[in-house]
Nucleic acid binder design. Structure first.
Lengths: 139, 139
DNA sequence: ACAAGGCTTTACGTTTACGTAAAGAATAAA
DNA sequence: TTTATTCTTTACGTAAACGTAAAGCCTTGT
């Protein structure tokens, strides 16, 4: 069963190829309740909506969301029309992640600061008299 | 055995409290070769250097480095005086992580874009004639 | 003398996000 | 009809980063 983007239905390999994930990943997401493709006999048929949900999941992943967190977000999409409370929760989730990114950037800055100071010492050591080779001694 | 920051030696609970991690975590890091405290009998005695290394590890963690990646970075610190190649590798590591942060921010932007469009539809749906309650139907 | 802490090692348990067979049904191609 | 694909379900395996006992050694305070 192959691509049929016109009617917006996809096989499991269609989607897995398009998004560069394995079929196993799609089945896993389904197992966790993040996807719910129709069936043609036993075979999974993914709709355009499923495809959109998958995109959201993978975005979440890239963002550093856990699948459970993504599930919350997807839960908002699922009904077709979310409510304000859900939307609020989602924005809150996003805000959390933004804060996390900020925190990570701070860690980065701090680390770079450490490294600067370290490098300074390092270079100072290099400029020290060559006669004193202690710094190469036995590690 | 308690804090003795003057001589720069710490017990396992000293450090675990200071950095808000469990003793288990410190033992685990040691098991993984990231720390190498001296012993007083069987008991671990952490030096100022160990403390610095721990700080670097936790910074790396906050940054999203795996322990293995941190181990590389720590490896640079360990000898007391790194060389240029090692330093280069480290900066490269940092650059990788920076790129990753950029990628994450892009994901964030994309997601926010999706949500904007979604919300637009959402609001459009809300503004639709109330008579048509289909959007609340059975979910 | 003895309980209370603090430390040790050993070792199995836990979560997340899949990977990796294994075995079989169904369909398509030669 | 035999072979090859593509799909299915079931189920055990894996890596990371610790958590969580269990059992025992040492050193204080009472």
């Amino acid at each position: 069963m192959n691509r049929d983007s016109a009617s917006g239905s996809y096989s499991i390999t269609d989607l897995s190829r398009e998004f560069a994930v394995t079929p196993r990943t799609l089945r896993f997401y389904e197992e966790k309740g993040l996807l719910n493709p129709k069936r043609s006999g036993k075979n999974r048929i993914y709709s355009a909506g499923d495809r959109t949900r998958l995109r959201l999941i993978l975005r979440g992943r890239q963002l550093g969301l856990s699948l459970e967190e993504s599930a919350e977000v997807i839960g908002l999409y699922a009904p077709g029309t979310p409510n304000h409370e859900q939307l609020h929760l989602l924005l809150q989730k996003i805000e959390e992640k933004r804060q996390q990114l900020v925190s990570q950037r701070e860690a980065l800055d701090a680390m770079l600061g450490d490294l600067d100071r370290w490098q300074t010492n390092f270079e100072a050591a290099l400029k020290a008299p060559i006669a004193n080779h202690q710094w190469r001694q036995k590690v």
